[in-house]
Structure formats: C-alpha cells, structure tokens
C-alpha cells in the first residue's frame, strides 16, 4: 500500500513538550540548593525530617490510590514535591512523626480527597503546616533553633531559639540586631528550608530559566509585602522582613503552585499582591510572627473568584466600553 503523502489530523498541531513528570522534576531540582542549605545549617536531623516527609507523602499517595482503586500516579513526582515542600516548611526540631501526620493531611485530606493532582484547592504542604500548627502549637512554635552545623542531632530544649520574626514580633525591631548577611546566607533560626535566601534564589532562577514559573506571582508578592511593611516602618525593617521567614520559599515555590494560583497574568498579579499585603498584615498586626503560609492559603481560596473576574478578552471580541 502506498504511503500517504500527508497525515491529516485535527488541531492542535504544535505540542508542548512539558509534562507533569518533567515539571515536577524541575521543581525538585530547584529545591535541591535550599534542601542542602537546610541540612548544612540544621544538621542531619533536618535531613531525617525531610526524608520521612517525602517517604510518607509517597506512601500515602500509593496507599490511597490503591485503596480507592484509582490509577497509581505516584511516579509523576508530585507527591515527592509535596513531601519535600512539607519537610522544608517544618521547624527543624519537631518530633520525627510530625512529617507523617503532615503528609497524611497534605496527601490524603487536601489532595486525594478532592480528586488528586490538580484538583486541590489549597497548597497541600502549607495546609498541612497550618493543621500541624493548629493541632500541636507548642512543638511547632518551640521547634526552632540556631543553626548548629551538619552533624547536629540535638534535642529540642537544649538550644531552642525563636526566629528573627518572632523576636521582632515580641520585642520590637532593633536594626543593630538584624544580621542581613546571616539572613541572606541562611545562618539564622527558622524552618528547615526557608532560611537560606541565596539557595532559594538559585532554585528560583532555575525555575524561571526553565519557564516553570512566571515572574508575576513571586515579584508582586515580595514587592507588595515589602511596600506594605515599609509604609508602616519606613526603615531597614522592610528589607529585613523580606529575607527572613518563609517569604522567599513561599513566593517562589508555594504561591506559584499551578492548581492553586490564577491562570491569567493579570490574575497572577492580583494574587501576588493579595498574598503580599496579607503577609504584611499578619506579620505586623496579627497574633503570629509569620504570615506567609496563611496569606497564601487565604489567597488560594480566592483563586476561582480571581479567575472569574480577570478573564482574558477573546480575540476578535470588543473591548468593554470601546
């Protein structure tokens, strides 16, 4: 039989080579510097928490999909990303079963019960952190310590030390006490993966380069948080706020999560500014020293609304009022 000259197919003809696996692998790669920084500063215990978190997330995903007789999609790496992010947002001295409870909330409650990948209405890792915070407030707030070096396997109460934001929250701000270099490198008290700004920026640059994330959400998020803090504290505090706490990790890796962020560039700008202002409000006026997680979770809930109001104009239709 003669080979046909043309293969006739319907549109689309241009296929993107982006797949879920690939995107997830990029995100995992981009998180490697922050993970390494976390382990270097907070020791093998931090590595243990991260590994348990990833393992638990993967196991819960497989267990649920097997039990519910759904196709097992754990090899797409999304569970591993959730597990890694969960490990990175936990304080380094929490008990080792914390990531297991957290992974249960993230994977089973937030992700799978709502339909699995792409159906979650909240960021799973942050939702898990919020639940852990509500359930076990004491270990979550007392689980921070000053960086102790790689081979540290310390107990919680020996060196417990509040985060810079907690100190600002309770004692006010002393510009002299703010060590910008330490905060930039990550040599400060904080959650495992959030302290090293430089490592997070390297990861973020990689994601930008691979076009996994666009600039809208992170830049609007960070800028609006900075402007908000600056309005109420017109001094160095505004800058220090940007490089401490979970702002960098949240802005680049959490707020940009596809299912829980708007689809259009305009929507992303609105989303990012909303996150930034909420973060500023919670940090300066709220009961908690840190507000990135809650800001992102709250804005997650507004995503369907944002998407509804910032629909792009269909090509060829009239502009409103034109």
């Amino acid at each position: 039989m003669e080979k046909p000259l043309y293969t006739v197919t319907s549109t689309p003809h241009i296929h993107s080579t982006d797949t879920i696996d690939k995107t997830m692998r990029y995100v995992l790669l981009a998180l490697v510097p922050a993970t390494i920084a976390g382990v270097v500063f907070f020791g093998l215990r931090a590595l243990m928490i991260i590994l348990i978190s990833i393992a638990a997330a993967i196991i819960f995903e497989v267990l649920f999909q097997k039990t519910a007789k759904r196709p097992v999609t754990v090899s797409d790496g999304s569970a591993a990303v959730t597990g890694l992010l969960l490990g990175l947002v936990l304080p380094p001295a929490v008990p080792l079963w914390f990531p297991i409870v957290g992974a249960f909330v993230a994977i089973i409650v937030v992700k799978q019960l709502f339909g699995g990948l792409g159906q979650n209405f909240l960021n799973p890792a942050l939702a898990a952190r919020a639940v852990l915070m509500a359930a076990y407030a004491l270990p979550m707030t007392a689980g921070f310590f000053e960086p102790q070096g790689l081979y540290n396997w310390t107990d919680i109460d020996v060196v417990a030390s509040p985060t810079p934001l907690a100190i600002i929250g309770s004692e006010g701000f002393y510009p002299a006490a703010a060590d910008f270099v330490a905060a930039f490198v990550g040599n400060i008290s904080g959650s495992i993966g959030e302290t090293s700004v430089i490592a997070l920026l390297i990861g973020a640059a990689f994601l930008f380069y691979k076009k996994v994330i666009s600039w809208h959400i992170p830049i609007c998020f960070i800028a609006s948080a900075g402007v908000f803090v600056f309005i109420f504290n017109p001094n160095m505090l505004a800058l220090y706020h940007l490089i401490t706490g979970g702002l960098m990790l949240g802005a680049f890796f959490m707020a940009t999560d596809y299912p829980t962020s708007p689809m259009t560039p305009m929507g992303k700008v609105v989303f990012g500014i909303g996150c930034g202002i909420l973060t500023g409000i919670i940090r300066l006026f709220g009961g908690f020293p840190e507000g990135v997680a809650y800001a992102i979770l709250l804005m997650n809930l507004t995503v369907p609304l944002i998407d509804r109001y910032v629909r792009p104009r269909v090509l060829g239709t009239k502009r409103r009022g034109a």
Binding site: L113, A134, A135, Y136
Partner: peptide, 22 residues
C-alpha cells in the same frame, strides 16, 4: 501521646465527621 488540639476545635469536628461519613 500528643494531644491534637485541633480535634477539639471546631475544625476538628468537621474532620471527624467527614472521615466517619466517608
């Protein structure tokens, strides 16, 4: 045994109810 404070907060009621019904 760690006490999960969230379970006696209103949110915990929804969690418990949802899981039992499921």
């Amino acid at each position: 045994f760690p006490r999960a404070t969230i379970m006696i907060m209103p949110a915990g009621g929804f969690f418990a109810l949802g899981f039992i019904i499921a």
